[in-house]
Simulated assay, not measured.
Amino acid sequence: MPSDLASPMATYATGTGTSTGATTGTGTSTGAGAGASTGAGASTGADARGASRSPNSPDSATPSRPAESSPLPVGRPPAAAASPSSATARTDACASRDLTVTEGRTGLPRSGTPGDFAGQILLRNHSAKTCLLRGWPGMSVYGSQTVRLCVPGDGVPESACGKPVSTTEPRPLTVTRNTDTPPPTVLLAPRASTPFTLLWTGSSGPGCEKLYDSPYGAHFWVPGDTTPLTLTLRSNFGFCEGQVEITPFGTTA
């Protein structure tokens, strides 16, 4: 899913060819993109640049365009020698086997509206190489955090008393991609983490007509991989009417 990223163009020369950024006298330039020249009458550095226009001619230099923004590796600065496009092109997409999923800060009000919540989910790269994430995760839920209470004579096995009603049963869930923020390209360095966010209205919030008890766990998928990352939920994710929004990798809300 990564998209091509533009990077500034640079022209270099080797051997005895010419190079951009330096003007020579009557000699030839040497080295890859060197600022100095050899031979009789050769000029170097700022002198060479000054000699490229006459005193009577207007200054026609055009300001250079700033470099476009590039994906920054999470957890470390980008390598100085790598352009954005080449760094992205040679980075493999993250697979589920590279990642560990955990809960971040959960249950925080999203916008000050009563009953609205936001919960961060964190993906940590436990592999030995940087990998790439872009887009939205997939998600499903299962089980229930509701604990079964038993009374004598109800026919419930004693072994099931005081335990979750279900820890495996798939649950219906409507997942909508949140598009408030364009999906960034995340270069996830080893041992670094990146978030995405779940947004929902609680089942007890105003206007919610269908209660939805918090799931026991969730499965998450990264693009291009059919093996899920499984997380046992410790916080209350009581999605109103079984509806949740999900933000792109690398974003919070």
Rank of each mutant, 00 (worst) to 15 (best):
A13R: 13
G15S: 15
Q120V: 04
T130A: 00
S64K: 15
L123D: 03
P114T: 02
G31P: 00
A10Q: 14
T16Y: 14
S203E: 12
S83G: 07
S19F: 06
A46I: 08
L233W: 02
R105S: 01
D116C: 00
A40W: 04
E103L: 00
A46N: 06
Y142G: 06
T227I: 00
Q120R: 05
T181R: 12
P195R: 04
P206H: 10
P206R: 13
T20W: 13
A13S: 15
V151F: 13
P248I: 03
L188H: 07
T38Q: 05
T146Q: 05
W221F: 12
E209R: 14
E245S: 14
V222L: 07
T23Y: 15
T232R: 06
G217Y: 05
S83Q: 02
C208H: 04
C240R: 00
S235C: 04
T197R: 03
L122S: 09
T102Q: 11
A32V: 15
S57E: 14
R191C: 00
P109V: 07
V147G: 00
L211A: 14
T247P: 04
P157Q: 11
T38I: 12
R171K: 13
A80N: 07
T30Y: 15
P63V: 12
T16F: 14
T168I: 01
P157S: 14
A51E: 07
A82W: 03
H219V: 00
D154C: 07
T226D: 10
R65C: 12
T232N: 06
P73E: 10
S69Q: 15
Y12D: 07
T20R: 14
S29N: 13
R110Q: 01
S70L: 12
T226A: 12
L233N: 06
S111V: 08
S29F: 05
R191I: 00
A79D: 14
N178S: 14
S83V: 00
T146A: 08
P77M: 09
T168W: 06
S144V: 08
P206G: 11
A67M: 11
A189K: 07
N236S: 11
S57W: 05
P78G: 09
V141K: 06
C150D: 07
S140V: 07
T174S: 14
G153W: 05
S52I: 04
T16W: 15
S60V: 11
R191D: 12
P66M: 12
A10G: 13
P8A: 13
S37D: 00
A160P: 03
L211R: 14
A80K: 09
G119E: 08
T197M: 11
T23I: 12
A192S: 14
S52F: 10
S29P: 11
G39N: 08
G207P: 09
A81E: 10
R234L: 08
A79H: 10
P182D: 13
T16P: 00
K163M: 02
A87M: 07
Y216K: 08
E68Y: 12
T230Y: 09
S57V: 09
A51L: 13
T201K: 12
H126F: 01
G135N: 03
R105I: 01
E103D: 05
D225E: 04
G202F: 04
Q145D: 05
L132H: 06
S166D: 02
A10L: 15
T232L: 06
H126L: 02
S144A: 06
A6C: 10
D213L: 10
T194W: 01
G21V: 03
V151A: 11
P206F: 12
H126V: 09
R53P: 08
S111Y: 02
L233R: 01
L132G: 03
S86F: 09
A95E: 11
